[in-house]
Amino acid sequence: MTSDTDQQRRGPRPGTDVAPLPPRPDATAPDGIHPHGGGAPPYADPGDAAARPKHHGRGLRALRRPLGIGVVTLWLSVIVLLPLAALTVAAFDEGLAGFWEAVTAPAAVAALWVTVLVSAIVALVNAVVGTLVAWVLVRDEFRGKRFVNAVIDLPFALPTIVASIVLLSLYGPNSPIGVELNATRWGLVVALLFVTLPFVVRSVQPVLIEADHEVEEAAASLGASTWTTFRRIVLPTLAPAILSGTGLAFARAIGEYGSVVLIGGNIPRETQVASQYIQQQIEIDRPLNAAAVSVALLAIAFVTLLLLRVVSGRSQRREERDA
C-alpha cells in the first residue's frame, strides 16, 4: 500500500488529509466529496476507520461546530442570499404576471438571447483555445514561457472598463489594423474572450501538471496514436477541469458589463446585452423590468453552475482516488 499513501500525500484530497486529526467536526467535510472520504481506498480494512480517535476534544468540538456553521450561514445570508432574495421580491412586485410580462418583453428577450448566444460562443471558444494554451504552457518549453504565463492573468486583473477602452482603440472606429468591430456581435465576442481568457487555462493547467505521463506512454505502447491517446486518455482526464473552466467563463460572460459597454454599442436587439438592458431600464425608471431580467440572468447562472456540479461530481466519484 506504499503507493496509495504516496498518492494520498501528493494528491489534493481534502477529505482524507483532515480525517485522521483528532478534533474532527464532521460538518467541515466539503460536500461533493465521495462518502468513502475520497482517499480511503474502498478495499482498505474497515478497522482503520474504527481505530481513529474520533472522540478527542469532544467539548471543543461541540462548541466549535455550531459556531462555525453560524458564522458561515450569517456571512452567506448577508452577502449573498439576502440581496438575492430582495431582488427576487422586487421582480415579483406585480405578481407572477407582471414578472412574466417584464421578462418576455421583446427588448428583454432580445437582450437575453444576445447575451446567452454570445456567451455560449465565448465559452466554447474558451474550452478549445484555453485547453490548448494550458497544454502549451505545461508541456512545451520555450523562451518567454514565464512571461506568457503571467500575461494570462492580466485580463482578469485589469478593470474591465480599461479592457473595453483597450479593445475600442484597436477594433473601434479608425482601427489602426483596419478591423472595426465596434457595435457588432463580434465585438462583444472579442471583448468577452478577452476577460474570460484565464478561466479554462487556469483550471486545466494544474490537472495537466498532475497528469501521469506514464498513462500516455502506456496508451502508445498499446498502439494508440498521439491523437487517439489525446482523445481517449488525456481528454477524459481533463474533461472535468475544462468543463468547470468553461462554465465559469460562461457565467462570467453573461453578467459582464464593463468590457462590453463601449465596444458593444448598446444597439437594442443587435448588441445590447442583458446587463446593458438592466442599466437602461433603471435609467428610465423601470425597476421592475430591471429586476425581472436580473432574476432571469440569475436563473441562467444558477442552472449553469448546478449542471457543472452534477457533471463534475459524477466524473469525480468515478475517478477521484489514489492511483
Binding site: D212, E214, V215, A219, L222, G223, A224, R232
Partner: peptide, 30 residues
C-alpha cells in the same frame, strides 16, 4: 506503437476513467 511490445509500469498507469474491461480491451478497441 509499431514495435509489438507490451509494457507494464511501476505505478500501473491505469486508465482511471475506464472500467477494468475497457482498460484491458483498449489495445484491441483502437
Amino acid at each position: 506503437q509499431r514495435r509489438g511490445i507490451g509494457f507494464v509500469f511501476q505505478h500501473y498507469a491505469a486508465f482511471k476513467h475506464m472500467t477494468v474491461r475497457d482498460n484491458v480491451a483498449f489495445g484491441l478497441t483502437i
